[in-house]
Design a protein around this nucleic acid. Structure first.
Lengths: 344, 344
DNA sequence: TCAAGACGCTAATACGAATTATCAAGGCAG
DNA sequence: CTGCCTTGATAATTCGTATTAGCGTCTTGA
């Protein structure tokens, strides 16, 4: 149209004005005019092939991004991811094509599209260790939402500071008089018939619990939840004289609390229940649990932030971030039954 | 590694076994072995550049995909879109980078990434007419979720059959004795200071209402909602002796019903209220509205289906689909006050 | 004996832009 | 008149894959 070469169009299109690249103003205008009148847009694919990056952020989730269930645990993370991406002018690529093997999606498979994006955000309660190792080994830019143990090298992540939040909760409970505490959940134990290692988020909670408890000298137990019914758990807690139960899974807390009330027990009168985070499974309950809130939106947002720093050639500083959780007062923590300024 | 050419690797990688492409089994094995040991995966970008398609479906929304508000109207559409994409082995590209101009995202802008995907699904209550026209004109493969008027040509869509659903509701109301009906909503009137045309979904409802009513010969009114308070609307309905109000927007219905009950009126005793679809805005209410349900998940799913047929070279059949809405009995429809087998 | 396939693979090219080395023309000083 | 610099643009190359025409040799059938 304008009689100039493809190279010139490219230069004009990208507004190049370096010292060693000069375009006469009138030529530039002619080209711009033609671009405007035709609505020409450079093919993003060819562009990426040449430029090696394209402002696309991959999002990999081990479950569907848009779950059907009501207890929508991942949604807030994605809100944060989208908001940050929007501000950065990045598109999001959801790897919905990842095939499901053994009940979970796989990052790596023949024909994976990882390299279509500049980098990826990984989302899931627990990430497959082999896949993580490979991601690290291949040097693919990615950030995990949620803290991860090393996998052949440090894993970039933005996580929640479960140890601190759990410890703070322990101190609150001890502060109001509790002396017999229990941790209810998987903790750091393996799970299932294939004995998969516990997700970091669970182990972190138990670690925070254990550390805080060690400093206060109170009596504690750990009630693993694997394959146990709420009734079984409640019995175990009561038998042991536990007055404050710290439940890893919100839904377990709801089940135990509901059952206790059915039996005529008072929550928190007879038993305080502390929820170590938000519901990850749908948990129909009207109970206002005491505990803490996971900063999910911020985690998503900051994961994208960290990813962008990874993508910059300039040193990859602060690859791992832990965000603190907001305490929730709630209505399931109260001084234990026989505590009229009695203990200690 | 194997001493074969790049072309051979490509052929092996794609499992080509045509008559005119032959690879010796042992060569094939050698190459496969090398691929496996290195974990080599073809660059999806280069692949797309050569092949002209890449099993990526673009998703364009005029609002954030992951909204913060609770009344999450778009979510079910996206669930359907994701489920279909997953089954097809397609990835989803969310155009979060689209710049916001005049309060809404723009499909077209310099540097848009539309052509990165094979085709797009468009989501939004109303789509910008100029953009639609351009999409049609440029022949970009896309499907709208929600019926759209022609835009310089037929627009591919998967919509809800609002006329039929609304008409059915009218017949139900008339069937139980209502003779004075009102349509509460925008209908086909323009909106706002810039007088944007009404979205098709609103006009369709009013059309169904008008058509059904014409066949029954009852008395009706249309109460536009623009800038009017619930109190104003309620007054107008009562003054006119309306016994059944068909509300376009669920939230308006909730507001009117709430107000009516505050005033000591009975719903549906004194006034039946029919909701013409699901809440599009957060509407805190515990009222179980009579009306119908929009098949949102199916609409999303089928939009992807239609898109894939568009992408096939074989004739583009059934480009427009209307899905029927499921009636909801609810608790806000009852015979009008003075109807003891009296009328007609 | 000869033409026609079968066989297994590769060189060359296309895809659409970004980038770089290079070129021609003109101006200017010596 | 020569040599050098500036200006403005382009030809050629690159990115990594898919695709196709075509290579030489060996079989097969008539």
């Amino acid at each position: 149209m304008t009689g100039v070469s493809q190279a010139t169009v490219s230069l004009v299109l990208n507004g190049r004005a370096d010292a060693d690249v000069r375009i006469a103003p009138e030529t530039r205008d002619r080209v711009l005019q033609a671009i405007r009148s035709t609505g020409y847009v450079a093919d993003p694919i060819a562009r990426r092939l040449a430029a090696r990056h394209n402002r696309i952020i991959g999002v990999f989730t081990y479950e569907p991004v848009f779950p059907t269930g009501t207890g929508d645990f991942y949604h807030p993370f994605l809100v944060g991811i989208e908001q940050c991406a929007e501000q950065l002018g990045c598109d999001l690529l959801l790897f919905t094509s990842a095939p499901v093997v053994d009940g979970r999606r796989r990052v790596f498979h023949e024909d994976n599209r990882l390299r279509l994006a500049d980098g990826c955000v990984l989302l899931g309660r627990s990430l497959d260790h082999h896949e993580l190792t490979r991601l690290v080994a291949e040097g693919l830019p990615f950030v995990s939402v949620g803290r991860r143990d090393d996998a052949g090298g440090p894993v970039p992540y933005v996580g929640a500071d479960y140890p601190a939040a759990t410890a703070a909760l322990v101190h609150r409970a001890v502060g109001v008089g509790h002396r017999r505490l229990a941790y209810v959940g998987q903790g750091d134990g393996p799970t299932g018939p294939d004995r998969r290692p516990a997700p970091e988020s669970h182990a972190d909670r138990l670690r925070g619990f254990t550390a805080a408890v060690a400093a206060t000298g109170v009596t504690t137990r750990h009630e693993p939840t694997a394959d146990r019914s709420p009734a079984d758990l409640l019995d175990a807690l009561l038998d042991a004289g536990v007055t404050a139960a710290f439940v890893e899974e919100y839904a377990d807390g709801a089940a135990i609390a509901g059952l206790a009330r059915e039996r005529g027990l008072s929550i928190p009168g007879d038993l305080s229940i502390l929820a170590l985070g938000d519901p990850t499974r749908p948990a129909p309950t009207d109970i206002d649990f005491s505990g803490f809130r996971i900063p999910r939106r911020q985690m998503g947002w900051q994961a994208v932030e960290v990813l962008t720093t990874l993508l910059e050639p300039t040193g990859r500083s602060e690859i791992q971030r832990l965000l603190s959780c907001e305490p929730v007062d709630g209505a399931t923590l109260a001084p234990p039954a026989g505590s009229g300024r009695s203990t200690k």
